Amino acid sequence: MTSMPRSRAVPRSSWPVKSGRTIIALMLREMSTTYGRSALGYLWAILEPVGGIMLMTFIFSLAFRAPPMGDSFPLFYASGMLPYLMYMEMSGKIAGAIRFSKPLLFYPGVTFMDALIARFLLTALTQLAVFVIVLTSIIVWFDLTAILNYSAIATGLGMALMLGLGVGTLNCYLFAMSPMWERSWGILNRPLFIISCIFFLFDTVPQPFRDYLWFNPLIHAIGAVRQGIYATYSGDYVSILYVFGISFTCLVLGLIFLRHSYRDIVNM
């Protein structure tokens, strides 16, 4: 098996420029392979959450006269599903960053950090665009009156993105070291859709289950987004420090492990 060549020392003055070019090239490669060379690939990124929101709207509108908050089923479910999908997409993309860019990591000018940054930037930009398009379309299409708190929305989306980055970076190492963990993680993640307050409010969960549910960091990201969409929603349980604490802990651990082992991962 081909061994990974040793990286040559890069002058510090030229490193940001070369790394920036590498990241842009990796982003362009990702765009062409993941979304294709036409707008249809990006259209699917929008249709996926729209389809989920429409399905939940149809099902729950048959059983309930009004959503848990407000009077619009699509807006309520969008406020929960979009941050959830943002986290899932980010964590999955980052976890597979080295595997996706493995052939390019044999080149001295490409590092695992370039692969992670490129995937983070492209995924974040794509998901933020999807959020804006879907939320705006719902408000305009259903002629809703919404007083948006952009600061709270940005905080919630930032929590979802950073949580995805942290968990994805740690899993980038763990998946390579243990294929069994990758399969186990997929199984463990399945209940998240149900226990992340996408189609119900955290405040309505009875005790003691509410206290246990609080430790799910996605609860806080979704709660912050709903604070920004619904002016009357307090969301007192939301803890920014808790979510970013978990995110940065996972990120730092993942980067430390990858720094010491990514050459071995690439040569596997």
Rank of each mutant, 00 (worst) to 15 (best):
T123G: 11
E48P: 00
F112D: 05
M69G: 00
L163I: 13
G109I: 10
L170I: 13
A78P: 02
S38C: 02
P67D: 00
K102E: 08
F131C: 03
G186Y: 01
S32M: 08
L47M: 10
L26E: 10
I265W: 10
F112H: 12
V238L: 02
T22H: 05
K93W: 00
I46V: 15
W15S: 04
F200N: 06
F112Y: 15
L174S: 09
S19R: 15
N149G: 11
W15N: 06
S196W: 09
S234G: 01
T249V: 14
A63V: 12
G223A: 01
G245E: 07
G245Q: 14
I133P: 01
I138G: 06
M4E: 08
M31Y: 09
I246K: 04
S32I: 03
M113A: 06
M56N: 03
F244S: 02
M69A: 14
Y212D: 01
S239P: 04
S79T: 13
M180L: 12
N216Q: 10
L105E: 11
S137K: 03
Y233Q: 05
I222P: 09
F120E: 08
F193I: 14
L258K: 08
F248E: 02
S13C: 04
L128Q: 07
A231S: 14
Y233N: 02
A66I: 04
G235P: 07
L163F: 12
S7L: 05
V225Q: 08
S261K: 13
T33P: 00
A152L: 00
F131P: 04
Q207L: 09
A45M: 08
A25R: 11
T34S: 15
D71H: 12
